[in-house]
């Protein structure tokens, strides 16, 4: 039993470290404000990342005085043990979660995207 526990711990730790971490790739997540007037999708492999999202959201806030809270709309999946390190340390997972269903219901269907909307 002790050996199994040690093995599980080793697998979890190794899967959270390079190079195994690189194999699973980055977790591309989605963001929105409460009304869906700002939305952003990550594609980390090409540098479309959380930092770029923040740069865009800061610019959004400079011209919009309302609805200036950014939410993570991609859920944390506790069973993805290989992402535990990211879940605990990456700033993007510290954003509040908000259900996209809830946001989309409020916003309604999108006809033309503004420059602040990816979806």
């Amino acid at each position: 039993m002790k050996k199994v526990i040690i093995l599980i711990i080793i697998v979890v730790v190794l899967s959270n470290l390079p190079p195994l971490k690189w194999i699973v790739g980055p977790d591309d997540i989605l963001y929105s404000n409460a009304s869906g007037s700002f939305t952003f999708n990550e594609l980390n492999y090409a540098g479309r990342n959380y930092q770029l999202c923040i740069v865009n959201f800061e610019a959004f806030k400079s011209v919009h005085k309302e609805d200036t809270l950014l939410f993570r709309i991609t859920p944390i999946n506790i069973f993805k043990f290989w992402r535990w390190n990211e879940y605990l340390t990456n700033d993007k997972y510290k954003l509040h979660y908000k259900s996209w269903k809830e946001i989309e219901t409020k916003r309604g269907p999108l006809v033309n995207k503004t420059n602040w909307q990816a979806f």
Binding site: W22, I23, G25, P26, D28, N41, L43, N44, Y45, A46, R48, L52, V55, N56, A59, K113, N115, A118
Partner: peptide, 24 residues
């Protein structure tokens, strides 16, 4: 862009693409 991470096992495979806004 590729719609998602191309992956490490077959990084050269052709996959669906997407055009995205690149402001800022």
């Amino acid at each position: 862009y590729a719609k998602q991470h191309p992956g490490y096992l077959f990084p050269w495979r052709a996959m669906p693409s997407i055009i995205l806004n690149n402001q800022l």
